[in-house]
Design a protein around this nucleic acid. Structure first.
Lengths: 106, 106
DNA sequence: TTTAAAAGTAAATAATAGTTAACTTATATG
DNA sequence: CATATAAGTTAACTATTATTTACTTTTAAA
């Protein structure tokens, strides 16, 4: 199947999930919601993603339910395919976002 | 064991790894480096973390080597314990960080 | 309201991640 | 250099995740 957006019969999004706010530290549920929102927004079915990435549908469902008992590799494959990625945050107040490398930031 | 920093014989950090830049999308290797840097910075041994989280040392080593064939739950446990968390990024140019929820941002 | 597509679930099996225990190598200090 | 601590590795075993196949439910459009 194609790597680009796919349309249903009318070309309209079906049950499009609303995208959550992504700028802060996330919970697994929020991650799951973001993945579902991206996938449906791109008009891809679970079967589409399953075929494209060779990941079974039940596993994709687990991922989109926020189950953390999944392989990191599978989660990352899905995220990359959908154009999502992580950045890292540190709890510590001294490590401001843009400051870059520091010897003692924790 | 304690949840806070632990000292070795001299109270000095041993082989402290330099913290990578965290503000952009990361690779698994960079994530691994950040975890190792945080842990060593907090003066925690692999054994310390292993005991505290009930995760075996070989699994921790896999995580700190950037192996993605690990359970997401284990990675998140380690990150939370060390005070690290993720935020999400979208490839798409139209989804600017602070804009929050949008119906059609992909 | 009938139909088709997609989502979601379930059970059995296959694949593999995780643990345990023991050992080797590396690092730092006395 | 000798020693202690931590890091890293290995192999056998256990636990659990992933797949397959089939079925049920939901959703949306003709």
């Amino acid at each position: 199947m194609s790597n680009l957006a796919k349309t249903n019969r009318t070309g309209k999004a079906v049950k499009a999930t609303v995208m959550p706010n992504l700028s802060e530290r996330f919970t697994p549920i929020q991650l799951a919601e973001a993945i579902t929102a991206k996938r449906t927004g791109m008009k891809l079915s679970l079967a589409d993603v399953s075929e494209a990435l060779s990941i079974s549908k039940p596993t994709l469902v687990k991922i989109e339910k926020g189950d953390t008992n999944v392989k990191l590799a599978n989660l990352l494959k899905v995220m990359e395919y959908l154009g999502l990625s992580f950045s890292l945050l540190s709890d510590d107040a001294t490590s401001k976002e843009e400051t870059g490398v520091s010897d003692d930031w924790y």
